[in-house]
């Protein structure tokens, strides 16, 4: 038996919007730790990892570990039917091939339940070791989204370069080139507007902008985004979900042949 009650149901709506374009179908895993997912995009270039910790739910009952295959497109359709202020409860019985989403309005005058069919999904789970990153950039998520969107209109790839001067995002396309430099800005009165760069080594890596723009769909989840870079590793783009966990995206770099 599984029963998870989330008063701030809008978090789940935002999570689905943040991952459904990257991954079509995925297994959600439920354990005492929390509600989680790890899935790769169909071309195995990017990976998304979601964690909603059990402590973040108002009620969390998960009698045994469960893995539930879901179509993210269909799940997003159902969650779109929940109001932004609704309380969302996820329910599943042991051995059932369906999952129920219950939406309660804040005043309890409207209660809806949506039952969705589960599916069998063969998915590969990857072990991601803890790593020391050469550079970690923390910046406003809206600024990062804007940069990826703007550069995406000019080129297909972004070169991210971190030096002690700041972080530079560059692209090149048929019409010309673009460079955007963000310098460290430790805004004390407005921490959500800060740009903080922790650099051990200067690092330069190239990534497909299509994926970065897909990751930026998580912007409504967090005011800040953390970008962790190392020359020999995929980039990690992390959006923390307040009090609950995170959505992390891993993206393999492009290299010059």
């Amino acid at each position: 038996m599984l029963e998870l009650r989330l008063v701030q149901g809008s978090i789940l709506k935002k999570v689905l919007e943040a991952i459904k374009d990257l991954v079509n179908d995925a297994n959600f895993d439920c354990s005492a730790t929390g509600f989680s997912l790890q899935a790769m995009d169909s071309s195995h270039v990017a990976l998304v990892a979601l964690l909603l910790r059990s402590e973040g739910f108002e009620h969390y009952r998960c009698d045994r570990n469960l893995s539930m295959g879901m179509s993210l497109t269909n799940m997003a359709k159902m969650l779109k039917c929940a109001g932004n202020d609704d309380i969302v409860t996820i329910k599943a019985d042991d051995g059932s091939d369906t999952i129920t989403f219950m939406f309660e309005s804040p005043t309890q005058d409207k209660i809806a339940d949506f039952e969705m069919k589960l599916m069998d999904i063969d998915s590969e789970h990857l072990g991601i070791p803890e790593a020391e990153y050469e550079a970690i950039v923390r910046m406003p998520s809206s600024e990062f989204a804007r940069i990826c969107k703007d550069l995406g209109t000019i080129g297909d790839t972004v070169v991210i370069s971190v030096t002690k001067e700041g972080v530079k995002f560059s692209t090149r396309g048929d019409i010309g080139t673009a460079n955007i430099v963000c310098r460290q800005n430790t805004s004390i009165d407005k921490p959500e507007e800060a740009t903080i760069i922790e650099m051990q080594e200067p690092v330069t890596l190239t990534f497909a902008l299509r994926y970065m723009n897909s990751f930026a769909k998580a912007t409504p989840l967090a005011t800040q985004v953390t970008i962790s870079l190392s020359s020999e590793l995929p980039v990690v783009v992390e959006y923390k979900i307040a009090e609950m966990g995170y959505v992390r995206y891993y993206l393999a770099p492009k290299i010059e042949e």
Binding site: L47, H125, L126, G127, L233, P234, A252, K254, I255
Partner: peptide, 14 residues
Amino acid sequence: RSVQLSITGFYRSS
């Protein structure tokens, strides 16, 4: 010419 690497080249199946 740039080549897109795969995520599975970095992390192992667990």
